[in-house]
Design a protein around this nucleic acid. Structure first.
Length: 589
RNA sequence: GCGCUGGUGGUUUAGUGGCUAUGACUGAGGCCUUCCAAGCCUCAAACCCGGGUUCGAAUCCCGGUCGGCGCACCA
């Protein structure tokens, strides 16, 4: 069993996650989160919200998971996310049908599937791999398509990313932030991609959770006001050059920007923030790196793009976060498709005096001269230069038709005007997190097996080898553990159960996730809690009744301290949220 | 999607064309027990789905599905 299998086995057995629809034989690419799994997920999302929404101030929005066709036409998903495929009947290889006929026709990518089929047949195109016959071309789009409303309805798609919901709300969001850059918006939610072959459990799903931020910044100023916070932070960078050389270098965020490895401060800040988040949820820094997209794999519009990658036992380095400078691409795309300008007005520090060359066609004379064409002629005139207008006869071409305009029909002057700002299409910095993958990685990095001394058997029949046994510990960060503390009466006796229940109530009032367990021996219960990652266990024994104290056990070290019941709720809270060290939680036992 | 391979209690396993389908762990109840999966008793729980061959299929065959691996795909 490799680590992946062990983690998945534990996850299934203990109620973290499992394949969906098991009752009906399952469906690939879908996973259910069980009681502990969904709590773990919420707690990871909670930390994300704390960092991005509370700390950075990027307010969260919620938009539909179904989008109308226009949105994905604009974003490029309708055309770019779909390709005509055709497969070899003999060897099964799949090919881009349009690529197969690329050299015999100019507009291969504009052909319908039927046209492609005819071309392939007429030209007797065979499988480039094995020479076998090719099957019919079919459209494969990674988006789930659906119909909105009855009948044929309006085409809709399950969103393949949460981002578009934020872009198309740009105007309202900009107003919300009083039209001042930079501002950021976030969304955590489900996205859908009809993967051809989803595998690797939760790593590649057809329905998955994304946490995305879209940060709209001034394209003329990509410095970050709070850059100092992270300039000294060390990160593992696997830059484009590093990939050539095969080396990952450890470097501070500040130096990476100075040396031009990361394009600018704003992007670098978000690489560091991502690094911080992944550390907070328990990803081990030794198995984390940031890989720069190579020029040829980066989307053509992006300036720079880095993926956070986490090293896993079975799958190697997997991408969990993408952090990109998408420039003004998305806003421009939606502006064009929706025919609505999307921009922010940015005031200059100092108003500028600008000399404008202004053309004033005399419509009173142009009208009678050119009748219905007068307006078009005037528009062309307005764009002409002084030199062109100073000719004896002015030639104007409208839709290929030439008009001669006499100079007395148009006046022009130079005007000095004060300009205090300009309309700017913001650039977008986009950190995009795959929550399911991160969750899996936190589980894998938390998974530990260690050998511990087994209890010595009493009596004469020492049948079992008493030396060592395996302890499984899920070393989840206490902040994300789905059970934060277990309350365990030492014996299943009512005089211990009653005070134990009182302690449970006190801790719940403090807002902590508690489990109560009185089944089996104390050792068994400790092991059970080790396996689901409960960081602390409280044990109530007979002495507790006299000295009003309990024992707290630390999951990782198995050390115990004795502490008064009186302040137990606050104490556990401080332990869980890192405000107090375990050794300061009481008297060592 | 293609190829190879597998699918037995919650988990992990044994096994065979034919009794009532193993065992371990876990779980539930009880006995015992004053801090790390101890012991004893009792109980619960399974042959991926559909079709075919057969007197009889969980077992053999075909198809599907799910998992794993390889190929392809991964804006």
């Amino acid at each position: 069993m490799d680590k992946y299998e062990k983690v998945i086995e534990l996850a299934k057995r203990r109620g973290f996650l499992w394949n969906s629809f098991e009752l009906y034989g399952g469906a690939a690419g879908f996973y259910d989160y069980g009681p502990l799994g969904s709590t773990l997920k919420r707690r990871i999302e909670h930390i994300w919200r704390e960092l991005y929404i509370i700390h950075e101030g990027f307010m969260e929005i919620e938009t539909p998971t179904i989008g109308i066709e226009e949105v994905f036409v604009a974003s490029g998903h309708v055309s770019g996310f779909s390709d005509p495929l055709c497969e070899c009947r003999k060897c099964g290889e799949a090919f881009r049908a349009d690529h197969l006929v690329d050299n015999m026709i100019d507009v291969a990518d504009a052909l319908s599937n039927t046209e492609l089929d005819i071309l392939i047949k007429d030209n007797d195109i065979k499988c480039p791999e094995c020479g076998g016959d090719l099957g019919d071309a079919y459209e494969f789009n990674l988006m789930f398509r659906t119909a909105i409303g009855p009948g044929s309805g309006r085409a809709g798609y399950m969103r393949p990313e949460t981002a578009q919901g934020m872009f198309i709300n740009f105007q309202r969001l900009s107003k919300f932030y009083r039209d001042k850059l930079p501002f950021g918006v976030t969304q955590i939610g489900k996205s859908y991609r009809n993967e051809i072959s989803p595998r690797q459990g939760v790593i590649r799903l057809r329905e998955f959770t994304q946490a995305e931020a879209e940060i709209f910044i001034n394209p003329h100023n990509k410095t970050h006001p709070n850059f100092e916070r992270f300039s000294g932070t060390l990160v593992n960078l696997y830059s484009e050059d590093g990939q050539e050389r095969g080396t990952i270098e450890q470097i501070t965020i500040g130096d990476a920007v100075k040396q031009g490895i990361i394009a600018h401060e704003y992007l670098a800040y978000h690489i560091a923030l991502t690094n911080h988040f992944l550390w907070r949820v328990g990803i081990s820094p030794d198995h984390l790196r940031f890989r720069q997209h190579k020029k040829d794999e980066m989307a053509h519009y992006a300036i720079d793009c880095w993926d956070a990658e986490i090293e896993t036992d079975r799958f190697g380095w997997i991408e969990v976060v993408g952090i990109a400078d998408r420039t003004d691409y998305d806003l421009n795309a939606h502006a064009k498709t929706s025919k609505t300008e999307l921009y922010v007005y940015i005031e200059y520090d100092e108003p500028k005096m600008v000399t404008n060359f202004v053309v004033k066609p005399d419509m009173g004379k142009l009208g009678p001269a050119f009748k219905g064409k007068a307006k078009s002629v005037a528009n062309v005139l307005k764009d002409m230069t002084r030199e062109e207008l100073e000719q004896d006869v002015i030639k104007v071409i409208v839709n290929g038709e030439e008009f001669i305009v006499s100079p007395d029909l148009v006046k022009f002057t130079e005007e000095r005007v004060k300009v205090s700002g300009e309309n700017v299409v913001p650039h977008v910095i986009e950190p995009s997190f795959g929550i399911d993958r991160i969750l899996y990685c936190t589980m894998e990095h938390a998974f530990n097996e260690e050998m511990v001394a087994a209890q010595e058997e009493t009596g004469s029949n020492k049948s079992k080898d008493p030396k060592k046994e395996k302890r499984i510990i899920f070393k989840l960060k206490s902040e994300i553990a789905p059970v934060q503390v277990a309350v365990l009466p030492l014996m299943t006796k009512s005089e211990l159960i009653e005070p134990a229940n009182k302690i449970v109530a006190v801790i719940r009032d403090r807002g902590l996730l508690v489990s109560y367990d009185d089944s089996g021996t104390i050792g068994r219960r400790y092991r059970r809690n080790d396996e689901i990652g409960t960081p602390y266990s409280i044990t109530i024994d007979y002495e507790s009744l006299d000295d009003k104290s309990v024992t707290i056990r630390d999951r990782d070290s198995m050390d115990q301290v004795r502490t008064p019941i009186e302040n137990i709720g606050n104490l556990i809270y401080e332990l869980v949220y890192g405000e107090r060290e375990f050794k300061n939680a009481g008297v060592p036992v």
